[in-house]
């Protein structure tokens, strides 16, 4: 089955791109908690739940928004999400640990604890984009193109998906990235890109 990459987005501490075009530069070198909100406003998104999410989910959410801007409607049970991540939910984990550090002053919070799993970012993506297909979070050192290609290709062949969002989303104290690809089995002349999905799918040169 020949699959296509129909959209691409990447968010890093320096800039944001969608399908090879610059969306926003982080000229002021703001930390993510500012830059992420700047991007949210820049994209004119209206989704108040965004502000309740942890950084990892916010990253995944913003990257998915950029990736799916051309999609008006899709059949959510024909969409899968398969992501790589390295640092798990480290920033929320630390926040939860801070709340229980002092046993005489225990204040663990449900609003923090529910984000202490890396797959919660996939859950947030599913809620926002009505995705009801498979969603799997693999932990890996960096974007493992070979593994994700094998897994996603097989997933399309075995379960007849129309779309799969794949890539790598990671947030730690020192850095962050959301690098996402929209893979599709459907012809869509309105899609921003039409590139072969192969073992070098991350080597998109614009």
């Amino acid at each position: 089955m020949q699959l296509q990459i129909q959209a691409h987005s990447i968010i890093t501490p320096t800039s944001v791109q969608a399908n090879g075009e610059f969306v926003l530069n982080n000229e002021e070198k703001h930390p993510f908690n500012l830059f992420g909100k700047e991007l949210y406003r820049h994209l004119s998104i209206q989704y108040p739940k965004f502000f309740k999410m942890d950084e990892l989910s916010q990253l995944a959410f913003l990257g998915t928004h950029l990736l799916t801007m051309h999609i008006e409607n899709w059949d959510g049970d024909k969409v899968a999400i398969v992501l790589g991540n390295k640092s798990s939910s480290l920033s929320s984990d630390k926040r939860h640990y801070q709340s229980i550090a002092d046993r005489s002053n225990y204040f663990p919070s449900p609003a923090v604890f529910v984000y202490t799993l890396p797959n919660i970012m996939l859950g947030e993506m599913c809620i926002r984009y009505k995705v009801t297909g498979e969603n799997t979070c693999f932990i890996m050192e960096q974007l493992d193109v070979d593994f994700l290609h094998t897994y996603v290709q097989h997933l399309f062949e075995a379960e007849h998906y129309h779309y799969c969002i794949t890539g790598f989303v990671d947030y730690s104290d020192s850095s962050y990235i959301a690098e996402l690809y929209l893979v599709s089995s459907q012809k869509d002349t309105g899609a921003p890109l039409a590139l072969d999905f192969d073992k070098n799918f991350n080597q998109i040169i614009f």
Partner: peptide
Amino acid sequence: GSQSNDANHISGPSRTGEG
């Protein structure tokens, strides 16, 4: 084997169990 998502809530199951 197969997997799905409720697309409903991050910390509670869907009431109807669609997923």
